[in-house]
């Protein structure tokens, strides 16, 4: 595939990642950073998650796909501690999330990032303040260091000139990228991307997945990426899980999917028109 580089306005470019082919997954995978067992969640009578088992090791990029409304966002929100499951066990970075107190959760969250499906930018702050916010709040860096890093992260997502705008002055795709920069600013070890390329043009989408992969390789983080854009996420993901009817319907690499006899799996991984799938209309 062709490498789509970002503009060279970066204050401090990531060494050796600026050009060249996309780095592949490390051969040696680390310890388990996310472990989910028997996760169940209902909303009233509607069963959304019906016993999800899932594991992710340090250094992996895992794609999560599935029809709209299957519970992908609910799944990541539970993993981030924003929602309580009805049943099950969630272990994040070696800590039992559901059994931990507020302080432990807080410390855990400093090491975990989430890019929201609906941006969730702070609308009372400028773009620059939004991106700087997690760093400012942590209070470990000096003001000018923060500014440099903000500029760098915004340039990474191809938005070097928007820091003085308010979020409502941005397009949907731009907001998405600001959300990406904000979630990344403290270099979390584990990042959840909830549909990071929804509303983006194909070129920017590819750039974003490229960025996800490069960031992962550069900082050796672990990423979980939800997307409907299977074609463009291909180069970024090591393996996938396909959620269906509250369960993990398929797990494995793209090659596994290609050899699968399951028509649903085949349909989801079909090359070409990745956006329109009949099973989206459930």
């Amino acid at each position: 595939m062709t490498h789509t580089g970002f503009r060279d306005t970066v204050a401090e470019p990531m060494p050796s990642l600026r050009e060249g082919p996309m780095p592949r997954a490390p051969k040696q995978l680390g310890e388990v950073v996310l472990r989910v067992r028997g996760l169940k969640k209902n909303f009233g009578d509607a069963v959304v998650l019906d016993g999800i088992d899932f594991e992710m090791r340090a250094g992996e990029v895992v794609g999560v796909i599935g029809p709209g409304g299957v519970g992908k966002s609910v799944f990541v929100k539970i993993c981030c501690g924003l929602m309580e499951p009805d049943e099950g066990h969630v272990e994040v970075l070696g800590t039992d999330l559901l059994a931990s107190d507020q302080k432990t959760k807080q410390r855990l969250r400093e090491r975990v990032g989430l890019v929201f499906q609906n941006y969730a930018l702070f609308d009372f702050m400028t773009v620059g303040e939004n991106v700087a916010f997690p760093m400012v709040q942590r209070g470990l860096a000096k003001a000018d260091e923060i500014q440099v890093k903000v500029q760098e992260r915004l340039a990474e997502v191809d938005l070097p000139n928007v820091r003085h705008l308010m979020p409502n002055e941005l397009s949907g795709g731009m907001k998405k990228r600001v959300g990406l920069a904000r979630a990344n600013i403290n270099d979390p070890e584990l990042i959840f991307f909830d549909d990071p390329t929804a509303g983006l043009d194909p070129v920017t989408s590819s750039k974003i997945f490229n960025l996800i992969r490069r960031t992962q390789a550069h900082r050796n983080s672990t990423c979980l990426v939800i997307s409907h854009d299977i074609d463009r996420m291909r180069p970024a993901c090591d393996r996938y899980i396909l959620l269906l009817n509250g369960l993990v319907h398929f797990r494995g690499t793209e090659a596994d999917a290609m050899h699968s006899q399951d028509p649903i799996v085949k349909e989801f991984f079909r090359k070409g028109d990745g956006s329109k799938k009949p099973s989206d209309e459930r």
């Binding site: 969250r109 609906n118 702070f122």
Partner: peptide, 21 residues
């Protein structure tokens, strides 16, 4: 409005307690 646009959740994921902030 912050609640329904998930800004409160965003605070929490950034390890900031909405009560304090």
């Amino acid at each position: 409005t912050m609640k329904v646009t998930e800004q409160i959740d965003a605070l929490r994921t950034l390890a900031i307690d909405p009560t304090h902030y």
